[in-house]
Design a protein around this nucleic acid. Sequence first.
DNA 1: CGAGCCGTTGATATCACTCAAACTACGTGG
DNA 2: CCACGTAGTTTGAGTGATATCAACGGCTCG
Lengths: 226, 226
Amino acid sequence: MTLSDVLRRMPLFASLSDAQREALAEHCLTAPCARGKIFFMEGDEAAGLYILLEGKVKVFRAAPDGREAILHVFGPGEPFGEVAVFQGGKFPASAECVEAGRSLFLPRTHLLERIAGDPALALRMLGALSLRLRAFAAKVETLTLMETPQRLAAYLLLTNDERMEQTGGKTDAGFQLDISKALLAGLLGTARETLSRCLTRLVEQGAISLDGRTVRILDRKFLEGL
Amino acid sequence: MTLSDVLRRMPLFASLSDAQREALAEHCLTAPCARGKIFFMEGDEAAGLYILLEGKVKVFRAAPDGREAILHVFGPGEPFGEVAVFQGGKFPASAECVEAGRSLFLPRTHLLERIAGDPALALRMLGALSLRLRAFAAKVETLTLMETPQRLAAYLLLTNDERMEQTGGKTDAGFQLDISKALLAGLLGTARETLSRCLTRLVEQGAISLDGRTVRILDRKFLEGL
DNA sequence: CGAGCCGTTGATATCACTCAAACTACGTGG
DNA sequence: CCACGTAGTTTGAGTGATATCAACGGCTCG
C-alpha cells in the first residue's frame, strides 16, 4: 500500500484530490517507533504534526516528581501534536510510544499550505479539533464530578459501545481492553492500585466479568446508576 | 460603534476585508443577556456560535444531582459554542450568563461559508480552538496531579500575571478576582467551603493578602513551590 | 537467569466532600 | 427606620474515599 493510499483512508484527508494527496505524501516522513520512544516533550518547538499508522502513543503532562497526567492514548489513524501547529508553536504536552508501530510526520509549513488551499480540509481539521475538545469536556466532567468507580464505569460502558459499533456485533462476548491497566489508571486519573480494587469490586458486585483484559458487561443498569 | 467595528476588534475576524465584515455583520444578531439566562443546554441542536460582547458566561456540564463541572468562564470578546458548529451539531456542554451583558449570535451556515471562503479565517479559527485545547490540557493536569491548594496557587499566579500584562503594571497593588468565589471554586473543581479554607490558610501563611476580591501576591516563591 | 513491567493485596494517613449553621452586605418594601 | 430576603462567604464537625508506602507473584524479553 502506498503512502497516498494510506492518506486516502484517513478521514482527515479524504477530501483531497489525488494530485493533492500525492503532493502531500511526498512531504511526509514515515518512521518506525519503538516502545518508549519520545516523539516530543512539552515545550519543544513544533515542526509539524504526527499521525500514527500503527501502535499506540500516550500524550501526557508530567509533574516534576515524575507523576503524569495522561491526556489521551492514540491508536492507528489518529493525528497528534496539531495544537502546536496552529497556535503557539510549542507543544503543550509530551508524547511517548507505548506500543511499537509506525508514525508519519507532516511538516508544519506544508500542512498550513494545504489547509490554506483547501477549505474542505480546513473544515475537517476544525472538526477533528472539535472532537478533541468534546473528549476533554467529558474528561474534565468525570474528573470533577465523579469518583473513581464511576469514572471506570463510564469508561467501560463507552468502550463497550464503541467496540460493539465497530464489530457491528450482537456478540455479547465482551470486549478487550486495548491498553494496559496501568495506562488505564493514568487515563482515569487514578493509581494502578485503586483501579485494581475498583475492578475486583465490580466483579464481586456482579456488574462485570473480568478475565485478563477481556471485560464483559453483565449489569448495565448497575454501571449506569453508579 | 457599529457592529462591523466590533467585529474588526476581534482577533478572530481581523483578517476579513471590510466588505466581508459588513456581510458578516448583517447576519449577526445581538441581544442583551441577563444574569441567569441560559444560552444553550448540553445536547441542544446548535444553530450557530455565540460571541460575548459584555458580561460573563460560564460553560459547564451538569450532573443529574445538580452539581456541575465548570469548563470555562468567558469574558468580553470570547467566542463560545463553536465545537457544535464544526462537529456533531449538538452542544457538548451548557452555557449560562453569570454577569449581565450583551451577546452576539452568528448563524452556523453563514459562518461556514465565510470560513470556506477565507483560509486566513479558517486558520484563526483553528488557532482559537487550539488555544482552548491548551487550556483544557492545563486543566486536566491540575485536576489530576494537584490538590486544591496547589490548583488555587496556580490560578492566582496565572491570573496575577495576566492582569499585570494587561495593565502593563509594575503596580504591585494586587489584582481583582473577576469572578465570585463560588464560581472560582467550580472552576477549580472543588467546593466553596474548601476554597474558602485554602484562601485563609494562604493568608495565614503569609503567601497572599486578601481583602474582598482583591488579592495581592506576597510570597511568589512559596506559591510556586507548593 | 535476571531485569523490568504488570497486576494484585494490605495497612495507614490525609485530604476534601458533605451537612449544618451563622455572618456579612445589600437591597426592597412595610 | 427597621424587618426581611437573597447572595456571597466563612467556620465547624464528622466521615468516607483515595493516595501512598510496601510487599509479592506472574509474565515476557533479552
